[in-house]
């Protein structure tokens, strides 16, 4: 728990704390780290380690799903090696939660997060939003459907990356929001009009080149392209209250008792870390008082669907559906 003064301050303001207000971390922690955006999570971990010389931080790195499976397997074997699990997608966190391995987080910590991102047993760290990147020489934002279910019938040429994990999470959200049948029909219609790419940066680049009018991709690919190529002919459009503007998140789970894992999570929610990941990785801060990445509208102006992100762990039916309709 935070010292009483800080707790009072936090409950009133609900803005990101500074690292200066946090207790020093002392002791040994083992963190399982799923692959993140480039090496920037490593920069954060290095900074925390350097600031806390009495912290002995052991890190095991690997693909997020593989680490989640390892944690479950270790638990079933009566072993616990990880104190924390930082995952790039919430599906893996759902797997851990469903096994009853995540410990409850204190309310003063979860209250730091924006209202839609408060969970009892895990903490989102940063977000990413599904977007419709479009070619600005061919379209305006008004030309892009604001209903994701209408995209296949829009008459526009479309790029997508159906083998890509983020796209599959988006389809999972659609399945949960619209149902199996509607999602299957949507996939079938899309399959007839869409051009496939291996990854979503490839989709954004194809939009910019004019190979397709628009595409499906996480927001940061467009922002990063525009950071490197300011005159890039691509911009972002958003759908309204459907899977097309799903906000997914990276998140962290505490797997052991004690203050140390919890206080470690507090460091990730500081305004310094949130600002760093916003400015350097173009990820969306999920605590109040930290600016979103340049080029992205405030989340408050977008209407993402209300969905429990851990339900996105239910990926198997999505893959089955995508295979059934011939998309995978």
């Amino acid at each position: 728990m935070l010292p009483g003064g800080l707790l009072a301050q936090e409950s009133q303001a609900k803005i990101a704390l500074s690292v200066e207000e946090l207790p020093a971390l002392e002791g040994e922690l083992t963190l399982y780290l799923g692959r993140g955006e480039g090496g920037l999570y490593e920069n954060v971990l290095d900074a925390i380690q350097q600031r806390n010389p009495a912290l002995e931080l052991n890190i095991r790195r690997g693909p997020t799903a593989a680490l989640a499976n390892a944690i479950v397997a270790e638990s079933r074997a009566g072993v616990r090696r990880a104190n924390l699990f930082w995952a790039v997608d919430t599906g893996a966190i759902g797997l851990i939660s469903n096994e009853g391995l995540a410990r409850e987080l204190p309310q003063d910590l979860t209250n730091q997060l924006q209202a839609n991102f408060r969970y009892e047993k895990w903490s989102p760290i940063t977000g990413r939003i599904r977007t419709l990147p479009y070619n600005t020489e061919r379209l305006t934002a008004a030309d892009v459907p604001d209903d994701v279910m209408a995209v296949p019938d829009s008459g526009l040429s479309i790029g997508w990356a159906p083998a890509y994990a983020s796209f599959q999470s988006f389809v999972t959200a659609m399945r949960l929001l619209e149902g199996e049948q509607a999602t299957g029909e949507w996939l079938q219609k899309m399959d007839k009009v869409a051009r496939s790419y291996a990854g979503e940066l490839g989709v954004v680049m194809a939009v910019e080149r004019g190979e397709v009018d628009m595409g499906f991709a996480n927001h940061y690919y467009t922002l990063r392209l525009k950071a490197g190529k300011p005159d890039a002919t691509v911009d972002l459009a958003f759908t309204n209250n459907d899977a097309g503007c799903l906000v997914n998140a990276s998140g962290i789970v505490a797997l052991s008792e004690g203050d140390l894992p919890i206080n470690f999570i507090r460091y990730l929610l500081t305004r310094e870390v949130q600002s760093f990941l916003s400015s350097e990785a173009f990820e969306i801060p999920l605590v109040d008082g930290v600016a979103p990445p340049q080029g992205l509208p405030d989340l408050a102006t977008i209407q993402p669907p209300d969905i429990n992100l851990t339900r996105l762990a239910d990926l198997r039916p999505t893959l089955d559906l995508m295979r059934d309709v011939g998309v995978l």
């Binding site: 480039g38 940066l201 490197g228 190529k229």
Partner: peptide, 12 residues
Amino acid sequence: EGVEGDLIEQDA
């Protein structure tokens, strides 16, 4: 694909 995002900021 995991490093493209970093790289595209430097040289698209």
